[in-house]
Nucleic acid binder design. Sequence first.
DNA 1: TGCCAGGCTTCAC
DNA 2: GTGAAGCATGGC
Length: 272
Amino acid sequence: MVEVEIQQLDLAAIAQSGQCFRMSEVEQGVKLVAKGKFLQVWALEENRFRFDCSLQEYETVWRDYFDLNTDYQIYSACVLKKDRFLQRAMEYGRGLRILNQEPFEMLISFIISQRKSIPAIRTAVECLAQHFGSPIQTSDGTVWAFPTPQQLAQASEEELLECGLGYRAKYVLDAAQKVASGQLDLEALGNAPDDILLQQLQTVAGVGIKVASCTALFGYHRLKALPVDVWIQRVIEKVYHGNFPTRYEKYAGVLQQYMFYYARCPECDFLK
DNA sequence: TGCCAGGCTTCAC
DNA sequence: GTGAAGCATGGC
């Protein structure tokens, strides 16, 4: 067990924010599977948190995963005072962070995300893990790691259809095969500039600019990547008169995440 | 029961 | 180059 003090970390907000699909809320915290590991985290009093892992694992895995080396005040500080929508969104989503997740898992998860609700994405991703991933034994029972490219590339389209992927099954298979064969080198792309990364990701069938942007943002921490889904499109049209403010370009992905989280909540009345 | 979902591909024009 | 139709299936 590790107990640490962390400013601006809202576990529930992150779990609900639509950037990760294998984190779920438990009493006073979350449980998740990521990077081949199972983790539980609880929120204690006064910005203190308990991580159910060794200090070494916290330092080498989870500190980076939760982006805890970044002071998120730099993001709220760049928001214009007169931008009431984003001011409100940053306040509402305080504690949201951009997780450092695995590129392959992000690519597959966001291929699945197209025309699916967040609960349906979670169900499908969990099904893939249970059918094709490696088991992880925990005190809570068995959970499954997200499949490796090799594990997923061996699946048949029929097997993938059992996870409710529908027409996306062939897209998932194409992605897994391209990565497993080395045709698409996700690790090497870590050193590529943003435009090349986005372009290469879109060589996969069923991957357009939105899925590529989600992969770049959540899997490669490219903070300029701006995924425009139906919600962000509504924000751009209703709040910003058709153009995402150039002032926010540097951190567009981060700010977008606060916009997305706030825009979807019942109390947001900017989009009516 | 019917509608909608963190889009993309295909095909007119 | 732009716009609209079609897509499989789960969740509410």
